[in-house]
Amino acid sequence: MSDMKNRWIALYVENQIGVLAKVSGLFSGKSYNLQSLTVGTTEDESISRMTICVTSDDITFEQIKKQLNRMVEVIKVIDLTDVPLHMKEILYAKVTGIDAEDKAELFRIAQVFSVDVVDIGNDSILLECKLTSRRNNELIALLKSKYRHISIVRGGAVAIESISTGCR
């Protein structure tokens, strides 16, 4: 379908056992294409907020929101797709088996991507990135094209509605 794209939802849920399983179970059970899901408690400890990214068409996305809404444990569903927001994903990239020249190159890459070098060894380096998911993807693609031994850990995006301007 032509209107297939990534869409974002913020979900306020009861902070209870089983709620994460229920929400993620909806996505697997109904074959919705879940890209990422993060969860943590809010300022009110009895409530968690999830940031969910799905790839879907318009009709399926409407259905997903309705299905989430009718869950008893779901307090509020917010469609973030066309909302100005701040959204970042934490990512660690460890590159090993590198020589001094590679290291120097990696420092330059870190600078251009505005990510931090947080640890370093004789033949390895650790980058800590707080970028948008898309920018993280680009970084991973670049690292993969240049180095053979990389390990990636990424957390999925978290997002909050912005106060003034529309930045992502």
């Binding site: 056992i17 089983g18 399983a21 229920k22 179970g25 909806l26 059970g29 008893v72």
Partner: peptide, 13 residues
């Protein structure tokens, strides 16, 4: 509760 999550309106321990 896990088994019946998707076939009940609500299930809880």
């Amino acid at each position: 509760v896990g088994i019946t999550r998707s076939i009940t309106k609500y299930s809880v321990t």
